[in-house]
C-alpha cells in the first residue's frame, strides 16, 4: 500500500471550495436519515401541523384581532417562526448523538474542514425546516390562510424564517457539543426556547399579555422575527420593514457569536 502523497493544494480559493464540498457531504449524509427512516419524517412533521390546527381551532375563536383579521392569517407567520426555532433543537441532539456514537471522533481525525460537520448539520436541519414550512403552508391554505402580498413577499417571508431559524441552529449546536449527553441536550435545548417563543407576538397580540411581560415580549428578538414575517405575509400594520432589518441584524449577531463558539466546542469535543 502506498501513502497518499498528492494532496489538493491549499490556496484560499481551493480551501473554501473544499470546505463547501465537505459540508455538502455531511449535509447529504444527514438528509439520508429522513429518506431512510420515513417514520422520522412523518413524526417530525406531524407536530408542526398539529400546532397549526390546534392553535387555529382551539385558540382562534378566543383571540380578537383588530380590523377583523382572520386568526389563521395572524397565526401562520408566527407558527413558521416557532417551527423553525423548535426545529433547531434537533441540531444539538443530532450532534450529541454523533458524538456518543464516536462519529465525531472519526470526523475529527479526518483531513476534512473543522466547520463541515457543523455546517452540514445546520444546513440539513434548515432543509428539513423548509420542507416543514411548505407542508404547513399547504395545511394553512386548506383552512383559509393566504399570502396577501404576492409571490415575492412570500418567498422573502420564508427566507426570513429560515435565516432566523438557521441562527438558532448554531446556538443549539454550541449547546449540544457542550452538554454531550443526548437526553440532557434534549431538555437543555427546549427549556429556554419554549418560554422565549411563547412570550412573543407569535400566537397572541402582545397587548393581551400581563403588563410586566409586555416589555419583554416587545423586545424579544422572536417578536421582531414574527412581525417581520407578518409584514411580508400581510403587510402593515402587522409588522414593519424595520422588523425585517432587526431580524436580519439579530441573525447576523447570533451567527457571529455562535459559529465561532460552536466550532471551538467541536475542536475540543471529547
Amino acid at each position: 500500500m502506498t501513502a497518499v502523497t498528492e494532496r489538493p493544494n491549499t490556496s484560499p480559493g481551493n480551501r473554501i471550495a473544499w470546505e463547501i464540498r465537505d459540508a455538502l457531504v455531511i449535509t447529504r449524509r444527514n438528509l439520508f436519515k429522513y429518506v431512510r427512516v420515513p417514520t422520522l419524517l412523518i413524526f417530525s412533521t406531524v407536530q408542526p401541523i398539529m400546532f397549526v390546527l390546534l392553535f387555529a381551532f382551539v385558540f382562534g375563536g378566543a383571540i380578537a384581532l383588530p380590523g377583523n383579521l382572520d386568526y389563521i392569517d395572524f397565526l401562520m407567520p408566527g407558527i413558521f417562526i416557532q417551527t423553525s426555532i423548535f426545529g433547531s433543537t434537533n441540531t444539538g441532539i443530532g450532534l450529541a448523538e454523533d458524538m456518543n456514537k464516536g462519529l465525531i471522533d472519526r470526523f475529527r481525525s479526518l483531513p476534512m474542514s473543522r466547520s463541515a460537520v457543523l455546517a452540514g448539520r445546520t444546513v440539513s436541519d434548515s432543509v428539513r425546516n423548509l420542507f416543514v414550512v411548505f407542508l404547513m403552508t399547504g395545511v394553512g391554505y386548506l383552512i383559509g390562510f393566504d399570502f396577501q402580498n404576492g409571490f415575492f413577499s412570500a418567498v422573502f417571508a420564508i427566507a426570513l424564517v429560515l435565516i432566523f431559524g438557521y441562527a438558532f441552529t448554531w446556538i443549539q449546536a454550541t449547546i449540544g457539543l457542550a452538554i454531550k449527553d443526548v437526553e440532557s441536550v434534549q431538555a437543555a435545548s427546549f427549556v429556554w426556547v419554549f418560554p422565549l417563543t411563547f412570550a412573543s407576538s407569535a400566537f397572541v397580540p402582545i397587548e393581551s399579555m400581563a403588563g410586566w411581560l409586555q416589555w419583554f415580549a416587545r423586545n424579544n428578538p422572536i417578536t421582531h422575527a414574527v412581525n417581520g414575517a407578518r409584514y411580508l405575509v400581510l403587510g402593515e400594520p402587522w409588522g414593519s420593514a424595520s422588523d425585517v432589518w432587526i431580524t436580519l441584524l439579530w441573525s447576523g449577531i447570533l451567527l457571529a457569536v455562535f459559529i465561532p463558539l460552536a466550532i471551538s466546542n467541536y475542536r475540543k469535543a471529547v
Binding site: V4, R7, W18, V25, R106, M112
Partner: peptide
C-alpha cells in the same frame, strides 16, 4: 464513500 470523500 462518505469517508473517502472526506479524505477528499
Amino acid at each position: 464513500e462518505m469517508v473517502g470523500q472526506l479524505y477528499r
